[in-house]
Structure formats: C-alpha cells, structure tokens
Amino acid sequence: MSKLEDRFPNKRVLITGATTGFGEALAYQLAARGWKVAVTGRKLDAVKRTAKKVTELGGTGLGLRLEVREKDQWEAVHKALDKAWGGIDILVNNAGVADANSFDKMDDAAWDNLMSTNLDGVINGCRTYSPDMCRNKSGYILNVASVAGLLAFPEMANYNVSKAGVIGLSETLCAELSRFNIGVTVLCPAGFRSSLADNAARDGRAIADSSTGRAVKADIDNGRHTSETVAAFAIEEMEKGNLYSIPQLEYRLVWMLKRLMPNTFYKTVGWLYRNQLGPFAN
C-alpha cells in the first residue's frame, strides 16, 4: 500500500458536495496532509467557508460553486482548475441527496431530482475529468455510492437505482481506465453520523416517514461511524486500490450473504418487510 502523496506528488483534489458531512471531512483530512483541495458546492458562502478552513489546516483551499447536474458549470470548474493548478489528480464525486418512500408514492420530481444529482452528477464529473487523466496516464476517481446500491432494500427505489448506477459506472471505469493507470474506488457506506437526513428533511424528503428510512435514520443516529471515520476509511481504501469500499463490517457481511444466496436473501427481506420485522419494525 502506497500513500496517495507518493502516487500524486502534486496533491490536487476536487471534491463535490464538500461543504457538509463526508465531503467536508475528507477535505479537512486531505488538507492536514498538505493537499490542494477544490471545494465545490451549491452555496458559495459555504464553499468559501470550507475552503478557508482547508487553508487554515495546512492545505490550499479553492472554493468554486458547482451544481453537479449542470454540464456548463463542470466546464467552468474545469477551466478554473486548469488555470489555477494545471488540473487535478483525484476526483471525488460525493454530492448527493437522499430519499425514502414506497415506489407508488414517488412522483416524477422525486425520480428526476435523485437521478440528476446522484447519477448524472457523477457521470458529468467522470466525463469531464477522465479525458485529462487518460492523456496524463495518471489519476484516481472516488465515486460515493451507498450500500443501498448493493442491497436495494424496499422503500428506496429511486435512491437504490441512482446508487446502483454509480456502482455500475465505477465497475466499468475500473476496467476501462486501468490501461491508463487510473484507479477507481466506489464508496458504499450505510448510514453514518452526518447531516444527510437533516438535509433531506430540509429539502422536503422526510426519510424517517418510511420503515426503511427509519432504519437508515437509526444508523445515522446510533452508528459508530462518523463523517470523519468514513473519510479516513475512504483514503485508506484508495491507497489500497480497492474498487469496493464498505466501511461498516456488518454490511460487508450482509452483502456477502446476498451474493451467496440472492433468491433466499430477497425472499427473507420481503417477508421481514411484509411483517414489519427486523430492520423494518415500527
């Protein structure tokens, strides 16, 4: 295992959704290691605040507004970072939103918002920066998905589909980009202590209104992992060069069980859900 700094001595990273939660924690941890961190997000005041703290912690912070759904904004960020740093070494596609509801209650807006941010935003980032990395024969992409994309529990159809798409994209890029010496990791955490549920509620998506959402909220409130521990785990996984990165041991075991006995797994999930037992208990 080699340190990221050994592989990327210029130490340049772009993080989407870097003003709260995991993205912010990752920005600060890389700042402490002397990285140049492009902090991006929708709100310019939060972007500037986070970029300032990056610099205070020993890195070089550069704040740029970025709505990941908008391709023209990606191009503007690309030009700004080319001018400032000559490009980046690591792209972290972290920006995302959460939702939890039954499939029949999801309207077009619920699907469009989740897919455009969680999946299209990641695609836009990869399409913007993979050509540069291929030309340079160097780079790393960290795509933040979710264990939801691996397990697909009920009452999270739009979220599951968006995150499964990120996982599928990451698997494809891992193979395609390997010939250019580009690494890919897809981070698949379960709920951890962060502002994810609060942000969803603020945006009108009360994930705790569904049984699965309540289970997720319980993970967020009571789990031992925080934004900081997940960020540290993600850095270690990139240094190992692992494709799949699942911070919580219990969910690594559940994923293994699903892969070994997929039909039995989903029959059991369906039975638990129908009877409101286990993680779906009210």
Rank of each mutant, 00 (worst) to 15 (best):
E5I: 11
E5Y: 05
E5T: 14
D6T: 13
D6S: 14
N10E: 15
K11H: 03
V13S: 07
L14C: 06
T16W: 05
T16Q: 06
A18F: 09
A18C: 11
T19G: 01
T19C: 09
T20G: 05
G23N: 03
E24N: 01
E24P: 00
Q29M: 10
Q29K: 14
L30F: 07
A32R: 14
R33W: 03
G34C: 02
W35N: 00
V37Q: 02
V39S: 06
T40P: 09
G41E: 06
R42I: 10
K43P: 01
K43Q: 12
K43W: 13
D45M: 06
A46I: 00
A46H: 14
A46E: 15
A46V: 01
V47H: 00
A51P: 05
K52D: 15
K53N: 11
E56P: 10
T60W: 13
G61P: 05
G61M: 01
L62N: 01
G63W: 02
G63I: 03
L66T: 00
E67I: 06
V68K: 00
V68W: 00
K71F: 05
D72H: 12
Q73G: 04
W74V: 01
H78G: 06
K79V: 12
W85K: 04
I88G: 03
D89R: 00
D89S: 00
V92N: 04
N93A: 15
N94L: 06
A95R: 03
G96S: 09
V97W: 08
D99S: 13
A100I: 04
F103Y: 11
D104I: 04
D107Q: 09
A110D: 14
N113F: 07
S116L: 06
S116T: 11
